[in-house]
Design a protein around this nucleic acid. Sequence first.
DNA 1: TATTGTTATACTCTATAACTATA
DNA 2: TATAGTTATAGAGTATAACAATA
Lengths: 155, 155
Amino acid sequence: MPPKFKAPPEPPDLLTVAGLDGELGFVLRMAQLAVFDDLIGRLKKTGLRPSAVTVLRLVRARPGLNQQQIGDALKIQKPNLVALIGALHKSGLIDRQPSPDDKRSYALHLTEPGKKALAKAMRQLSAHLQWVSGHINEAEQTRLIKLLNCFHAPE
Amino acid sequence: MPPKFKAPPEPPDLLTVAGLDGELGFVLRMAQLAVFDDLIGRLKKTGLRPSAVTVLRLVRARPGLNQQQIGDALKIQKPNLVALIGALHKSGLIDRQPSPDDKRSYALHLTEPGKKALAKAMRQLSAHLQWVSGHINEAEQTRLIKLLNCFHAPE
DNA sequence: TATTGTTATACTCTATAACTATA
DNA sequence: TATAGTTATAGAGTATAACAATA
């Protein structure tokens, strides 16, 4: 029988000892930090934050959308959307038309520069998604998203 | 053959049309919002934020820890830890002893009130974990955490 | 009355540069 | 020189209350 070599005793990991790396909240936060770190880094080239890109994507998916509907979808409260939408409008990426059927709200549309900017952002998003795929294969990704939806889907 | 009833055509979901609910970043963010919403709500009773509870847990796991080590574990940068640790010290939950072997750093320990406060917070955390278990069973939770660790484990 | 968008405001979290005292 | 802790500061994100115009 060959002599037994004990593996050198690993120093017990601090997070493990504290029980943090087995807790959903903590792991969720750390994963989000890592994923958004990559995404934000790539979007730097476009001058847009993830939230701005998301707004542009919603407006492209449903031209004529108003702020309230965007806020509901992204769980951003009304006052906090004013600056975000305002900046997109000011930089000429979205257009605000007075809504025909409700004079209180604006119908939002992408401008031509807005479409171009979104296309550029989507190319960066593509690279980001490839980075994600480097960490977790497609099947696992689908499973992960399904599991995460346990929390945000039902509300 | 019984008559066929077509399901009423569901209005296509905005998030689905925009392709957001199939993207990890977005789903991750939404899940984290929901999970932390519950956790923060429960911790309100203790006057502590999740980050403060996490710091207390690390110090309990490794008495004598310094700020740098905490920052590394939680990915919080040094300047942003000063107020957090300072508040815990000011409210008497942690004790700062000058470190014997390195006069630049402080060795952190839980005080008796700190231990009590952490115990109280851990009871709220327990209730939170039960809430989590209401959304996703143990096996799925284990799988979810494993999948999320694909991102924060390797660095 | 209720809703859309807005202002004002405050609190948290995060990021960078520069200082101090030790090492 | 490098590291631990600090200060100052700025930028995001988020929360509440209240208002005008409209429904």
